[in-house]
Amino acid sequence: MQLFPCPFCGPRNEREFHYVAEPGKTRPDTTGDITAEDWAAYLYDTKNEKGPVREVWMHLTCRELFVMERDSVTMDVLGSKTLRRTLPAEGAA
């Protein structure tokens, strides 16, 4: 049972988390033309790498979306960072 670091809550049991996606995929502007290939790549292509990976996860209890770096072989967690570009103006976190 792994321990994942929510950027807001700190380390929590893996049961509280849900995998969301691989990061770095930007939703195409669907008001313009998008080829079927580009749309399929956006929907379905995943790298599913061996070794260090970056993944978007959700901490289900606080709903924080964050990028976690971990090693898919050793299961070591290498770091986590909120998906937000800007943090709310608060000193507590």
């Binding site: 049972m1 807001f8 700190g10 929590r12 209890t61």
Partner: peptide
């Protein structure tokens, strides 16, 4: 019902326990 310890602080009081939030 949940993995919790006073030695492990958390900014949030929300957690999963006994199968519920």
């Amino acid at each position: 019902g949940t993995e919790i310890s006073e030695r492990q602080p958390s900014r949030s009081v929300q957690r999963l326990g006994f199968g519920t939030e």
